[in-house]
Design a protein around this nucleic acid. Structure first.
Lengths: 216, 216
DNA sequence: ATGGATCTTGACTGGATGGTCAAACTTGAT
DNA sequence: ATCAAGTTTGACCATCCAGTCAAGATCCAT
């Protein structure tokens, strides 16, 4: 007897994109989008499959037809997120103008806070809990990239091309300042009033801040 | 028949401190401390009474002898937290030297991140979820205080005593930069290695940053 | 030492929630 | 049109978890 055809577990390896029907592609995406909404505001344990199903407009058993478990949905979201999380920092170009490069990095992160606030909150939730699911990513990929770029920044400071700053704290400051606008958007909205976009005025302020910090 | 004597609900009004026995004082504090540990890392829904009981070294029914419900413990923690959350900003002195006042505010917030990281994470969890339980606090107390201090900063900039900056974003930047060291401590530890204190070097960096930002 | 008040807990309940399953429905290749 | 494969769901189960309860242990004023 052939086991009931589940639409591919694919927990590892290549997605085998072509092997999925249009319906699968569409519904998996709908589910991931709904799950991102729910996980990012309620955290993993705070989210329920019923909430996600309601948000997706599907039945709960139907979610579990497309994903093996609640955990699998969450893992998929995190994997997808981490896949692009490093890109802005990776683009920091050793050949470019130091100050312009760092400003551009800050702007890319700020764009991510504006365009992907739910992803930022998903990440924040994960770190707040001690990063149990993404520890190896942070200790390996992220750490090595940060070490590499910190080295680059140190060279820039030693060459006198930017003011002497601690490169690690510089990077952390960019993370803190940009992600704050996504992670703490609720607070900012309540303080500035709902009519403002939380990010109004953020770019000029951060440009001013880093210009003054980095000018030799 | 007298109803079983629960140790005072006290959900509102004065604690009636003296009315509690030594055992009550002690155990309530043990429970709140354990709950802070658990809620701050797992969030409200992610925490279980069993975890809190284990952390406190008490039985679950015993927790519920001292507090009416899981929610009541959480509410107590938040209330206690909010009670002092505004103090550092409140201390911003209109009569003091503007730059020194803002630097001192940053340092007070950084001290709180160092001394009360669990409280910071409890707060962060709450905001990430949209701040449902503390909306009125943020919309009223916090908002009014921020408006007042933003006004003060504006006066300082108009008097040319500090560089012209957006006062709201200045305040948000202090929150972001200082709380980041508590909320994202797990990430910082993984990147810098466990031997470093996450806050090593933070104070000089932030001093440098705000000195350069604010100097007229 | 004694007794009533305070504290503690094992055993339990009811509801929520992740996950299963078999039957029903839809799709599209022939 | 037909049917096998793919998709959907109502009903169900097992476990987890907040909260209850009544009986037992401890404390402390007298």
């Amino acid at each position: 007897m052939p086991a009931p055809k589940k639409p591919a577990a694919e927990s590892s390896g290549t997605p085998a994109r072509g092997s999925r029907s249009r319906i699968q592609q569409r519904n998996r995406q709908i589910i991931l989008d709904a799950a991102l909404e729910v996980f990012s505001t309620h955290g993993f344990r705070g989210a329920t499959l019923d909430q996600i199903a309601a948000q997706a407009g599907l039945s709960k058993p139907n979610l579990l037809y497309y994903f093996d478990s609640k955990d699998a949905i969450h893992r998929d979201l995190l994997t997808q997120l981490l896949d692009t999380w490093l890109d802005p920092l990776r683009m920091l170009d050793p050949e470019g103008d130091p100050q312009a490069e760092i400003m551009a990095y800050m702007r890319r992160k700020l764009e991510m806070a504006r365009d992907f606030p739910r992803e930022s909150r998903l990440f924040a939730n994960e770190i707040l809990q001690g990063a149990p699911r993404i520890e190896s990513f942070i200790c390996n990929d992220l750490r090595h990239l940060v070490d590499e770029k910190a080295q680059l920044i140190t060279e820039w400071t030693q060459a006198g091309r930017i003011a002497p700053v601690d490169p690690y704290h510089l990077i952390f400051s960019i993370w803190a300042l940009t992600q704050h606008y996504a992670d703490f958007a609720a607070q900012i909205r309540m303080i500035r009033g709902a009519q403002h976009d939380p990010l109004d005025g953020a770019e000029p302020f951060l440009a001013q801040l880093y210009t003054r910090l980095l000018s030799p």
